[in-house]
């Protein structure tokens, strides 16, 4: 077993454990922290996969942005903890587990059966440094990139509208005349 393999196995094990932790934790806060761990290990794996820019982006966007957002929401809403056993549809647990195993088995089988050739020349991707990725993004993928920025803008506005206090649910049933006072 080479060192790189050992490293992969260790990081992969941590990643899987964190993933299991996300699913199995009772407290949402714990889940969020396990998720953070999972994201971090994935960032490490990205480095080993010649994707340095994405590893950094992973840490910044997921760990730094999304997980923090989730933690904020948990603090806002307060985590309901006792949700693990869904009695009225308890049968779904077994079914879901069975389906997950089935999916995993199918995918593993296909990987082992049809995927054993060695990697191609990795010099082309230049280690996934920001320069290389940026070159691709701003030349060949300029249009999707701009579209992604529009998507983010829309999501921003959508989140703003949804998050506004109290008015969203009622606009549909309000009469056409403007309300007498608008102090919200």
């Amino acid at each position: 077993m080479t060192w790189s393999m050992l490293f992969f196995v260790l990081v992969g094990a941590v990643s899987l454990a964190a993933a299991a932790g996300v699913v199995l934790s009772r407290q949402p806060v714990h889940s969020a922290l396990f998720l953070l761990t999972n994201f971090a290990t994935l960032a490490v794996l990205y480095v080993t996969l010649e994707a340095q820019f994405l590893a950094a982006a992973q840490v910044i966007i997921y760990a730094g942005g999304i997980v923090i957002l989730i933690l904020f929401v948990i603090m806002l809403i307060g985590g309901e903890t006792n949700d693990f056993v869904a009695r009225q549809r308890s049968w779904t647990r077994g079914v879901a587990l069975g389906l997950g195993i089935l999916l995993l088995a199918s995918l593993s089988y296909s990987v082992f059966q049809g995927f054993n050739q060695p990697p191609a020349d990795v010099t082309a991707i230049q280690g996934g440094i920001p320069e290389a990725v940026g070159q691709a993004l701003f030349t060949q993928y300029l249009l999707p990139f701009e579209l992604a920025s529009i998507l983010l803008l829309v999501a921003l506005l959508g989140a703003l509208v949804l998050g506004r206090h109290g008015t969203v649910a009622h606009t549909g049933s309000q009469p056409a005349s403007p309300p007498p006072s608008s102090d919200d």
Partner: peptide, 22 residues
């Protein structure tokens, strides 16, 4: 394979948890 495992764990989590955040 690792990716598939994480995917499966995530999928099972979606199906068995009731907390929308999780």
């Amino acid at each position: 394979i690792l990716s598939a495992m994480i995917f499966a764990i995530g999928a099972v989590g979606v199906l068995v948890r009731r907390n929308a955040l999780i």
